[in-house]
């Protein structure tokens, strides 16, 4: 994975980048490995249960996302892409020993108020039947989309009740999540590499915050559900953060915020 980042870094400075999205569809077939699943569960706060954590297939699709985005045919430079939103739909509980077909493609290359955005879409099937969909929206600051098409971002409710939980997020959270997700983006790993990208300290992975927040709702998330999150202000490491949850019709609204009120993540869980 580090090799892919290096390759992408080189590609980013070379001329001749594509102007539109490639039609590439990348595929892999994988049965989760219990040891890896256990590592992921521990880092994110999930139990090692008889169904995969709803966010787990994202880390199975992530290597394909990076491979696709690191290629010369991808119009945006991978280094500096910011994960701004993520939507997951799980159709049924997925057992840890099921063989999963993972497909990843890119779509919706569109304008964003601060640049251009693109969706990396992942589909997971078992025996040809779809069990999980993921849509990760990335922003390239200052980039330009080919058409005037305006990108869509999820419309998420504000939640500002009392904290359901206070998290002490340790400094090594980025390194620990990198180890289980393969997302070794230097902005998450240590303060020095993060500063090179303009952050005062390392920042938590958005998908770690999303997973940690969902894990806190253990036992309350329907087996078939959508989980939609928007990533706001980066969560600097180490940090103390608050989780806010509010029961909604057919699900939950949630937020992760700093002790002074800055919102790091807003999200919704809904029954399907």
């Amino acid at each position: 994975m580090i090799g892919l980042y290096a390759k992408a870094a080189v590609a980013a400075v070379l001329p001749g980048r594509a102007r539109s999205l490639p039609d590439t569809v990348l595929e892999r077939s994988v049965t989760p490995e219990v040891g890896h699943l256990a590592d992921y569960a521990r880092v994110c706060g999930f139990p090692l249960g008889d169904a995969l954590p709803l966010t787990y297939p994202h880390v199975l699709a992530f290597p394909l996302q990076v491979e696709l985005m690191a290629g010369r045919s991808f119009p945006l430079p991978l280094p500096g892409l910011v994960h701004v939103a993520n939507r997951i739909r799980v159709h049924r509980a997925i057992a840890p020993d099921e063989r999963l077909e993972v497909r990843v493609r890119a779509e919706r290359f569109a304008a964003h108020p601060r640049g251009a955005q693109v969706d990396l879409v992942a589909e997971v099937s078992v025996d040809g039947v779809r069990v999980w969909d993921g849509r990760s929206t990335y922003l390239a600051r200052g980039a330009q989309a080919p058409t005037g098409l305006a990108g869509e971002l999820p419309d998420l409710p504000e939640v500002d009740g009392p904290a359901a939980a206070v998290w002490q997020v340790p400094a090594d959270t980025g390194r620990r999540y990198a180890a289980v997700s393969g997302d070794v983006n230097p902005i998450h790993l240590n303060p020095v590499t993060a500063r090179a990208f303009g952050f005062p300290r390392a920042i938590a992975h958005g998908m770690w915050s999303a997973a940690r927040a969902l894990a806190a709702l253990q036992g309350r998330v329907p087996e078939a559900a959508t989980y939609e999150v928007g990533f706001r202000k980066p969560l600097l490491l180490p940090s103390t953060a608050e989780l806010v949850t509010e029961q909604a019709k057919e699900g939950w609204d949630l937020a992760v915020r700093g002790r002074k009120g800055a919102v790091h993540l807003s999200g919704t869980v809904r029954r399907v």
Binding site: V34, G35, A38, P47, L48, G49, D50, Q218, G219
Partner: peptide, 15 residues
């Protein structure tokens, strides 16, 4: 080997 008491008890209760 990687399952904790809490993992197993919760899973069994949910079952």
């Amino acid at each position: 080997a990687r399952a904790s008491n809490l993992d197993m008890l919760t899973t069994t209760l949910d079952g």
